[in-house]
Amino acid sequence: MRKLAAVLGGVLCCAAPVLAEPMGAEAAGALLYPAKGSAVEMLPQDVLSETDVKALTMVGTGQPYYGAIAISPSEGLMVEATVAAVNHHSTEAAEAAALKGCEEKRKGEAACAVVALIRPEGWEARDLQLSSDATAAVQGDYTAPGALAISGSTGMFGLAKGTDAGAAAVAACEEKAKAGDCVVAVAD
């Protein structure tokens, strides 16, 4: 099980959708899930054994949401190409990161495939989705006036307080993400 956890820890980053307008903290709070508590959805596939599925489910529930697990179907589960991308702002971004990481490490002939999604317990689509860590920041450290900026390609985020919090949050996000795509998601 330790080897599986190490293999699945291959990619731990985040990503987020582009937002049209920032949302206030009160409205954001009503849409966010608790920062802890993940559930795994296994996707249809025909390469993993029942034991593999149980192991992925067990390991995946301990990971921060949103996430995805990709494997190289012709290599099996316990290889370097098995990648878990977690702590993103959406499963779509996590899928892209997991597939990219898997493809970079794949030695088998078959293209990598996402076999599992990691979402908050009781997940349903909502207008705002933030990673576990960004959710914890909004629920714990955020104060008005303030802002939280997120990166769509890396999932990093920045949190800032004060009158120019939006620009400061974007700068803090960009310092970590270095992707040029940070946007303010929550602001008061």
Rank of each mutant, 00 (worst) to 15 (best):
R2G: 15
R2I: 00
K3Y: 15
K3P: 08
K3W: 15
L4K: 04
A6I: 03
G9M: 06
L12H: 09
L12P: 05
C13K: 09
V18I: 15
V18M: 13
L19A: 09
L19Y: 12
A20T: 11
G24Y: 14
G24W: 14
E26P: 03
A27R: 07
L31G: 03
A35Y: 12
L43V: 00
P44G: 06
Q45A: 02
D46T: 02
V47A: 14
V47D: 12
E50S: 12
E50G: 14
K54W: 15
T57E: 15
T61C: 12
G62N: 08
Q63T: 08
Q63M: 11
Y66I: 02
A68C: 10
L77N: 00
L77P: 02
M78K: 15
V79S: 04
E80C: 14
V83F: 09
A84D: 10
A84Q: 08
A85S: 13
N87R: 03
H88F: 14
A93M: 04
A93S: 12
A93C: 09
A96E: 14
A98F: 05
A98Q: 06
A98S: 05
L99G: 13
K100D: 08
K100S: 11
G101S: 05
E103I: 02
K105D: 03
K105W: 03
R106T: 01
G108Y: 08
E109A: 13
A110M: 12
C112R: 08
V114Q: 12
V115S: 06
V115G: 12
A116G: 08
L117E: 02
I118W: 10
E124N: 09
A125M: 10
R126A: 07
D127T: 14
L130H: 03
T135R: 07
T135I: 05
V138W: 00
Q139T: 07
P145C: 01
P145K: 09
G146Q: 03
G146N: 04
G146D: 00
L148D: 00
A149W: 03
A149E: 01
G155C: 01
M156L: 12
A160Y: 04
A160L: 01
K161G: 05
T163C: 15
G166C: 06
V170C: 10
V170H: 04
E174I: 05
E175Y: 14
K176P: 07
D181W: 06
V184P: 09
A185C: 13
A187L: 07
A187H: 11
A187K: 11
